[in-house]
């Protein structure tokens, strides 16, 4: 082995070793790296009881209700197999939409309502959290398009359906 080959093997060994160590560490801490839990994980009791955690999923169409005269809002977060009702008092971010992704930080109340003190909008490039699509595929064999299409026509929302990656209205002019 020439010195140059030895150095080459050394560099490759460093990259390989660190990759392996990184992969092992990240898979060991998978739970901690994950930013939020979906409603199915909550229903399965994967969330430690009585602790604060983040709940992620899609806001069910037509589930948003505002209490008149206050900042309190109620909505339902779903991954299309389980639902969690959420209550929140505060200002919602710009991208908060029915039928769009959301991440709420808070605590489960005994009556099964998730009381959030922080609500973040998750802007997916497909307008749907990937894990929702994944659990959909796993649990119902449904395609992504089925899940995101068909917005509630009664909501009076004139926006295009969330699944459309179609150009915005003024594109191509």
């Amino acid at each position: 082995m020439t010195p140059r080959r030895r150095r080459m093997a050394l560099v490759l060994g460093i990259v390989g070793g660190v990759s392996l160590a990184g992969a092992l560490a990240l898979s060991a801490f998978r739970q901690n790296v994950t930013f939020f839990f979906d409603p199915t994980q909550v229903a399965a009791g994967e969330v430690p009881a009585g602790e604060r955690f983040r709940l992620g999923g899609m806001v069910t169409q037509g589930s948003l209700h505002r209490a008149p005269g206050s900042l309190e809002v109620r909505f339902v977060v779903t991954d299309f197999s389980h639902d969690v009702p959420v209550s929140y008092t505060g200002v919602l971010p710009d991208l908060f939409r029915e039928g769009a992704g959301v991440v709420a930080h808070g605590q489960m109340r005994h009556d099964g309502t998730f009381v959030a003190d922080e609500v973040l909008a998750k802007h997916d490039e497909k307008y749907m959290p990937p894990e929702v699509a994944r659990s959909l595929k796993k649990r119902h064999g449904q395609s992504r398009a089925d899940a995101t299409a068909a917005p509630d026509p009664s909501s009076g929302d004139s926006r295009p359906p969330p699944a459309a990656h179609a150009p915005p209205p003024s594109a191509g002019t």
Binding site: R30, V33, T34, F35, F36, F37, D38, G56, V103, L120, K122, H123, D124, E125, K126, P129, P130, E131, H165, A166, P167, P168, A171, G172
Partner: peptide, 20 residues
């Protein structure tokens, strides 16, 4: 992982999810 950040719109194998 579950992440707040959206997935890539351009640097992906499939067609970009963005209007031309």
């Amino acid at each position: 992982w579950n992440s707040l950040h959206q997935a890539p719109s351009v640097m992906r194998l499939a067609k970009p999810t963005m209007a031309a």
